[in-house]
Design a protein around this nucleic acid. Structure first.
Lengths: 220, 220
DNA sequence: AGCTTGGTGACATAACTGTGACATTGTTCA
DNA sequence: TGAACAATGTCACAGTTATGTCACCAAGCT
């Protein structure tokens, strides 16, 4: 998972990052809300850990802004010393998924991170489907109206991504990152080719291009 | 929402139920894990609030069973007096979405219930709307009365702007700045053209010119 | 070797967008 | 009232960029 830690205390942030890195998470940092929001525009994250008291833009405001923006569905965990009921309610009201009070056990944080991750995975456990398009996780087969499509592994992974988000569009960057783990937005020719092949395999009109943004599925 | 409260102490359960009912939730009760699982087979729930220490089948076991079963994706909140780190980790490991330690504030429970509800809602794309005009952020589509309009990216961005401000008018300068990041107010020909194209796509009379000022939407 | 997979790079195609010329509408003021 | 002017509408056109298409090559597997 790609995690964004937003915390103005560098030592605390580094500490957190080190711990999360142990579990094979890729961690980036922002030291105030403003910076966090900018980072979100540049790259893709699976989770945000957010301090509340920060200079420039505090966590609550940042949370609001994120929920109002393009990446509104990213899970957000508040991590703060403010422990009154009012603080917690304000946090949830701002759109938090979880609220953890400092001092806390790193292991509990990790457990809560995993819980959010699990929640996003769970709904795709038996099958992924969007309209007539079905991705069977068990057999790793893709079918349309019970007819099996012959897809290469990479194409299957792209389909999986698209179905997970459908009918939302998936950014070119997001696909590139998920498939090739490339942060750098360069080299789109491989993606173009894969999309081309995938489109040929799918029913006509199902894979739609949003120029300049990405691709999305269409159920018709 | 339909909520299942699983708690062997009848008084506590009733108390909880009364509180949640205040927020227009439909609450059912089970007094041990076994009974809860049976209930799940009979009817549909949106959320489970689960005590850990119970006779017949404790909460952890019940949680495991639920996650393994047919209703694997129901959000589960543990509610328990067991407050050690080990207990919490065990709870999350069993598949909990959240873990709240007794004694707790009813309002915090409600906030966490709402957070889980919100997370499920958020899967749907957020939308900006004004009257029949809807901009879907997730799919990046603009619709009027559920009919999709074919708009170019720049036009979509202008629609977004207009909807956000609607029914107020948006100054020419403001649009120019938002779309082209131009401080200089010159060069309105591009804007004129974009507005022209946008107006052709929208229902007649929806995009109104305020001469010398800017443009605004009209719902009719 | 033969097969599968997947990336590269060249080129074609399509989409998007600003420009500039001109038309139209509205406003001001003598 | 009617120039004269300003703002906006209309539209063909061309430059730019993103995407589609495809032949080919490299790497890995059987």
């Amino acid at each position: 998972m790609r995690i964004l830690v937003v915390e103005d205390n560098h030592a605390t942030a580094a500490n957190l990052g080190d711990y999360l890195a142990l579990f094979d998470h890729h961690v980036d940092f922002a030291y105030n809300g403003q910076a966090a929001i900018q980072l979100l525009d540049e790259s893709r994250f699976d989770l945000i850990i957010l301090d509340i008291m920060m200079p420039v833009m505090n966590g609550l405001t940042a949370c609001h802004a994120i929920r109002a923006g393009y990446h509104a569905d990213i899970p957000i965990i508040f991590l703060t010393a403010r422990d009154t009921l009012e603080d917690k309610l304000a946090g949830f009201k701002a759109g938090a998924d979880d609220y953890l009070v400092k001092p806390f056990e790193l292991q509990e944080l990790h457990a809560r991170v995993q819980a959010l991750e699990a929640r996003n995975q769970r709904r795709l456990s038996p099958q992924l489907r969007y309209g007539a398009l079905v991705y069977d996780v068990g057999t790793d087969a893709v079918t349309v109206n019970d007819e099996t499509l012959l897809l290469d592994p990479t194409q299957k992974r792209i389909v999986q991504l698209l179905i997970k988000k459908a009918p939302k569009l998936v950014g070119n960057q997001d696909i590139a990152y998920e498939i090739w783990k490339e942060d750098e937005p360069e080299e789109t020719s491989a993606l173009r080719t894969q999309i081309y092949r995938l489109r040929k395999a799918l029913p006509e009109g199902m894979l739609i291009t949003e120029r300049g943004k990405g691709y999305r599925l269409n159920a018709d």
